[in-house]
Nucleic acid binder design. Structure first.
Lengths: 125, 125
DNA sequence: TCTTACATGTGTCTTTCACATATAGATGTG
DNA sequence: CACATCTATATGTGAAAGACACATGTAAGA
């Protein structure tokens, strides 16, 4: 129950807690794409700037990108211009920008909840 | 992909984003129990003080409490003193308090990550 | 030639969580 | 008394997100 990907056993019989925001990869991708269009591998390398220690797994990233495209939150096309393996270049859509705005609001509310939690935690530490 | 329990369809064909912290019910329970021992139903009513709009579902709460007890993060005993249906009174253990401390640290790191995200979001809004 | 970096994917299992349902004692209301 | 409601604790089940492993192909460099 406490085991698993988000709270892993770790040397010394303690649980490693990450306290990640659910589906944080999604707003992170949208934010990176709002700054500039990019392809998947590029996003994979830039994501840790936003997600930190909690890396996004490669396979899931590409699935997430295709999911976002199905929802018309991003668009993509094969980029034949540059050399090397074929790459798909993604760009954010207006609907994607609106969703990012909603994420930002939700993240602000999340910040407030967590701040209240931490204040209450410190109260009688 | 964007559907489901955490991002629900909502009037007007838009996705409601909640941005909750994963497994937040766990530190919330530990914090409430550190303040004073309580039984499940009592915790169920007090949890919204910490979780806000994101309610904890009853069935999952009792499962979570038993899971925490298996890990010896809380202890419990049947409370025959008060009238009404039998209730199980939970208390936090020293291991539970240590885990709560780890959650607090993780939540602070989460706050910083989210703050960086929001700052970057505002940058070129 | 062989390895490594770049680039995009699929298969599959576990964990978390939502939603529905079951059980039972106590209390109030017609 | 019958019936509903509140208190209290559970189980069953299915969907979504994510971890981990693997597959495929191009290109550059040792």
């Amino acid at each position: 129950m406490l085991r698993g990907p988000r709270a892993r056993r770790h040397h010394g019989g303690r649980w490693r807690v990450l306290a990640r925001v659910e589906r944080f990869a999604e707003p992170a991708l949208l934010l990176l794409l709002r700054e500039r269009p990019a392809h998947g591998y590029d996003l994979l390398e830039r994501l840790p700037e936003l997600t930190g220690e909690a890396r996004v797994e490669m396979g899931n990233l590409y699935r997430l990108l295709r999911g976002l495209e199905e929802e018309e939150l991003v668009s993509s096309e094969w980029d034949a211009s540059s050399p090397g393996p074929a790459k798909r270049r993604y760009a954010i859509t207006p609907a994607g920008e609106r969703l990012l705005d909603h994420w930002a609001e939700a993240l602000r509310r999340s910040q407030e909840r967590t701040a209240r939690f931490l204040a209450r935690y410190e109260e009688r530490r």
